[in-house]
Every structure is written in structure tokens, then in C-alpha cells.
Amino acid sequence: MNDILLDLKDIWKTYDLGATSVHALGGVSFEARRNEYIAIVGPSGSGKSTLMNLIGCLDTPTKGRYLLNGRPVSEMDDNELARARNEEIGFVFQTFNLLARQTAQRNVELPLVYSGMPRSERVERATEALEAVGLGDRRHHRPNELSGGQRQRVAIARALVTRPSLLLADEPTGNLDTEMGREILSLFDRLHEQGNTIILVTHNPDVAKHARRVVSLLDGRIESDTGNGARR
């Protein structure tokens, strides 16, 4: 199996605002291998979220080539993008983005609903995922009955339940206090040890320390890419 999971070459994302145009990304090239743990850092407006959305198949680049697991995302139509999001990507958001009226269990099942998995199997997988993030006893709670850290763990369980190739997290600790943030980060560490590939966006240098590789963005370009020799 190919060891390279992500392959971005000269990626541009340009927003046309009539008179002017904004280059949210101006030629980003970057590769990631399986089981890497990468932090993307940079000042506000530097293009971190834009890059994450592209990697997460929520968006397509204006220009450039993006291969995910060897498949060209830049050429995918809506159905294929949806399928890639479902099968290849697990997304964790700063604001959790759980469905408020559904139990933790149902929230975690949701990606499997869209992949068409039969109900009984779904329930089993979701239960497993919730147990893996330490919420086996909170399965039937709704988000408003859970703490922020617990909500984020539900969101992580939801991201992992399809066994994706890549876990993406945009400021996953941004809405949590230090204690809960630490809880989430140690969960990420464990997931990384278990073989998951993780990319997270953060402002916080302490958070970035957990990653083995730090990619620093400035004005839509990669300013530096350092770490424990993950770069080839």
C-alpha cells in the first residue's frame, strides 16, 4: 500500500470579490504519510481553515492537484466528494457540531447511516467508538447533558466511527478550558499511537507540541515545515 496519504501540489484557493480577488492559499505543496501527526499553525487569516477544508474534501481548489489515497480530489463531483468525506475523512470541529436533539449514540451512528450500513451493525460500531473515547456510559445522553470535553469526545467518536484514513481537527480545543483541552489532546496522542493519521489546526503552541510535525502558514503559503523528520 502506498505510504503517502495526502499529496497536494501547488494548491491555490482564490476568492473572487468582484474588483479584487483574495488568494486564501497561494501555491501550497505538501505531503503527508500514514500515521503522521501534524499541526498546522499560523496567524489568523493565514489560510489554515481553507487548507483544512480542502484536505477534508469540503471544498475544491481553484488550481492545483490534490491526491487523497492516490485519488484526485480536485476532479471529484459532489457525490464522490461526499463519499470521500464519509469514508476517508473524520472531521472534528471547534464547536463540536453535534446534532442537539440526538443522543450521543445517534450522533455517532450518523456517518454510518450515510454509508448505508445496516442498523444493527451501526449500533455496534457506534457503541465501540464511544467506548474507545471513554463514553460507554454516556451513550444515551444528549449533547446538552454532556460537558464540553465530553461533547468533543462524542464528536471524535463520530469522526472515527467510519475508520477513516485521516482525522482532521480545526481548533479542537478552542472552545474548551485547559483541563478539558488536555483530556482531548491525550486522546489524540493515544489515537496516534494506535495508528491514526491526524492533522490539527491550532493557535496554541502548547497544543502544537503534541504533534510530531508543525506546518506554519503565512498569507496562504507554507512558511516553515518542521518536526521529527517526517518530511521527506
Binding site: 477534508g56 469540503l58 459532489d78 457525490n79 461526499a82 463519499r83 468525506r85 464519509n86 469514508e87 472531521f91 470541529f93 457540531n97 453535534l98 446534532l99 450518523l110 456517518p111 450515510y114 454509508s115 463520530r158 467510519t162
Partner: peptide, 15 residues
């Protein structure tokens, strides 16, 4: 937002 979440985790337009 719910629609956004559903799409982010794999809902297709037709879903």
C-alpha cells in the same frame, strides 16, 4: 448548520 454537519460527515445532495 445541521445540513452542514450532515454534509461534512458524508451526506450527498440527494440524501
Amino acid at each position: 448548520r445541521e445540513i452542514g454537519v450532515r454534509k461534512a460527515i458524508g451526506a450527498r445532495q440527494k440524501d
